[in-house]
Design a protein around this nucleic acid. Structure first.
Lengths: 238, 238
DNA sequence: GTCTATAACACGATAGAC
DNA sequence: GTCTATCGTGTTATAGAC
């Protein structure tokens, strides 16, 4: 593994502006090989898992050569890290922006705080990528299988996000004990990730077992249901 | 892939009694090769993911030969299926038993229903296996990566469980609309799985970001927090 | 039932032509 | 920047001795 120049040159290349929501065309110039690899990697890693996915499947989907990944990223592991950064960063920025907007109109109520937490990921997951739910499925797998490559890349920014939102929850509900606020933040994230991942194309579990009552393809319905459930849960007497 | 006799003979072999909680020794006779393979498979699949794990790592951990898996199970895929069945069956039976016990003392309150839903998996996950949380991590991965092998094996029994518990929720809270009951059942499962998987040996995210306030190694605390949050969420006005 | 040996193939990575 | 060819390794699965 020599520190050859193409790798380091490719690693410095911008390719993806921070804070920009994901979409097939927003990993950079859609024609650029690097951008096409990243989007194909999103699809394949989300569908197969990080360890199980192969670079060959990614390059086939991207329509590029196998060697292109090593030229543009240097290694499989670096590709994973850059993908996670490209996914987690914009998503969390949307949440922080939503929280800032809520705070700009005075001290936000609990509903507004929870909406800022769950609204952006649900909407982004459905609207911003070609196939919905890829994004959340990728994050679920980063959690399900802790790996050095994925965790170090994303945990730091998620920790800061959590503390920011817990503080906002505590400000909206001053009677809430600090310990409960942290537990319930975690419960909220769990409910969010589970429901978004639930309804993938093949199974639609909740839709099926509810006899069609729950439309898990409607992001507005998901957000509405999540906010009602989570706010009531946060307000529960310990 | 000829339908040779050893495979089918091995597949019929009982090896694991239904309804028995999981533990290293309860996949069957602890000395039996088949039982040792199953327990090693639980550990390795939970740690690495279904596709990424190799049979070699499983057989090394079980102290058996590589060929033993093919002799006792026939193929990698059948091993996965039998493992999922051995994991999901006993867990859900514990939940149904707990619900039955609650119903035996008259119509159960919502707290009792939720406790029957989340208590058994939390306790089983911590107490019944050598390494805690292996069990839930396995189920999370079965959800995160939909595969024919895992999903068909477990979804049917989970569907029945869901409907049983939603009915119990509706009986405890007659004013609750049926649609909301299904949404909130899914949210409860999401919160449960997320919190149990959160605190694996390396990261302990919630414990860390809460500054040590939340003890995610205490199953009683987890169940208490889950029940408070979920019951309040279920009772939310739509 | 358990082992060794090996077939048949997919993987990540790299060298080197263009 | 992009391709082909290939190396070395690890994988599932099976054949056959014991």
């Amino acid at each position: 593994m020599p520190a050859s120049s193409p790798k380091t040159r490719a690693a410095r290349q911008p390719g993806n502006a921070p804070g920009v929501p994901l979409s097939p065309s927003r990993f950079g110039d859609e024609k650029a090989t690097r951008a096409r690899i990243l989007y194909a990697a999103l699809q394949v890693f989300a569908a197969r898992g990080f360890e199980a996915a192969s670079l060959r499947e990614i390059t086939e989907k991207a329509g590029v050569n196998v060697a292109a990944i090593h030229y543009h990223f240097g290694s499989r592991e670096i590709l994973v890290q850059e993908l996670m950064r490209a996914v987690a960063g914009p998503l969390n920025q949307l949440r922080l922006d939503a929280l800032d907007r809520a705070c700009a109109q005075g001290a936000p109520g609990l509903e507004a705080v929870v909406e800022a937490l769950v609204g952006p990921p649900v909407r982004l997951s459905f609207e911003a990528t070609g196939e919905p739910r890829l994004l959340i499925r990728l994050l679920i797998q980063a959690r399900a299988l802790p790996q050095e490559a994925t965790n170090h890349a994303i945990f730091e920014q998620y920790d800061a996000l959590a503390i920011r939102f817990v503080d906002a929850m505590l400000q909206a509900e001053p009677a809430l004990p600090r310990e409960e606020a942290f537990w319930r933040y975690a419960f909220a994230i769990g409910a969010l990730m589970y429901i978004v991942s639930d309804s993938d194309q093949q199974y639609h579990r909740l839709h099926r077992i509810s006899g069609g009552l729950c439309n898990t393809d409607d992001p507005q319905a998901i957000v509405r249901q999540l906010v009602a459930f989570i706010t009531a849960g946060i307000r529960a007497r310990p």
